[in-house]
Design a protein around this nucleic acid. Structure first.
Length: 275
DNA sequence: CACTATGTTGGTTG
DNA sequence: TCAACCAACATAGT
């Protein structure tokens, strides 16, 4: 499901409900979501008594900052967080519940069970899995044009594959890569090391602009994404190519083509994005 | 009913 | 080094 704008929206909506809440107990109904520690009982023990002081985000990861540990959560395709009173019925596909000392609790719901949770010691977030290899967030200072250009120069993979590579830049997924490449007038199969510095600058700029606008709109709801208050995003109304197969290109009016690139559905205007 | 696709990513293979 | 394929899993669409 979510890419950077959706995760950021979840972070913002969730913060209103869980900051300063203390975890009294944890229920885990699908243990495979817990990756570290590998023992689910240990996972629960580490969390009990901890207070949520802040929620941060890097790329598509949420970081729940607790007293002396950080819970790092990835939603993969369908993960969702929401806060409920304890007497509200638990929905199907709810796999982890963080009970607070108050009368409410944080629930993690994930239809496809692909999501992951890691606990790491405070201060060691970036020196081990799952964040150790993660590239800069597009909104971070380190995501400079120099950095990005050097990275692209060093590989002859397709630009789409590189933009999806979270070790290069963290947060873009299938929707926003297609949108970014369209707005930059770059074909997704173009080799990264064949791009001019000007083109790389345009891709970087359009990526940041697109993500910023999508955050403003509360993300993109194609199928199932909703924020932590159950609200849909609005950015789907702004999509130029993603999901627009056979519709008119907003630039030139020619039909949008859907193709496969690196196994992913890929949307392009072949008139505006030449190889 | 069979088959495909889905907002992700990690592992294997050639 | 990289593309291709598969795996994890459930559901919706054709």
């Amino acid at each position: 499901m979510p890419e950077l704008p959706e995760v950021e929206t979840i972070r913002n909506t969730l913060k209103r409900f869980v900051l300063n809440r203390t975890i009294k107990n944890v229920q885990v109904y699908w243990g495979k979501i817990i990756k570290n520690p590998d023992d689910v009982e240990e996972f629960k023990q580490l969390l009990m008594g901890q207070t949520i002081h802040d929620i941060k985000r890097k790329g598509k990861f949420l970081l729940f900052e607790l007293d002396d540990i950080t819970l790092i959560s990835h939603l993969r395709m369908e993960g969702k967080y929401s806060v409920h009173y304890k007497d509200e019925p638990v929905k199907k596909h709810t796999h982890v519940i963080f009970e607070f000392t108050t009368d409410d609790e944080l629930r993690y719901n994930d239809v496809r069970k692909f999501g992951t949770m890691h606990i790491v010691k405070k201060g060691e977030e970036y020196t081990q899995k799952p964040l150790i290899q993660l590239g800069p967030d597009p909104f971070d200072k380190e995501f400079t044009l120099d950095y990005f250009y050097k990275k692209l120069k060093s590989t002859n993979r397709s630009i789409k594959a590189v933009l999806l590579d979270q070790t290069v830049v963290a947060g873009l997924g299938n929707i926003y890569v297609d949108e970014t490449l369209f707005k930059s007038s770059v074909h997704p199969l173009k080799k990264a090391n064949k791009l001019t510095k000007k083109e790389v600058g345009e891709i970087r700029k359009q990526a940041i602009l697109t993500l910023e606008e999508a955050v403003k709109q509360g993300g993109t709801t194609i199928r199932s994404y909703v924020n932590s208050q159950g609200e849909m995003g609005m950015f789907q109304q702004e999509l130029s190519v993603y999901g627009q197969e056979n519709k008119e290109c907003p630039n030139c009016g020619k039909p949008i083509t859907k193709m496969k690139v690196g196994g992913r559905g890929t949307h392009v205007c072949l008139n505006c994005q030449k190889l």
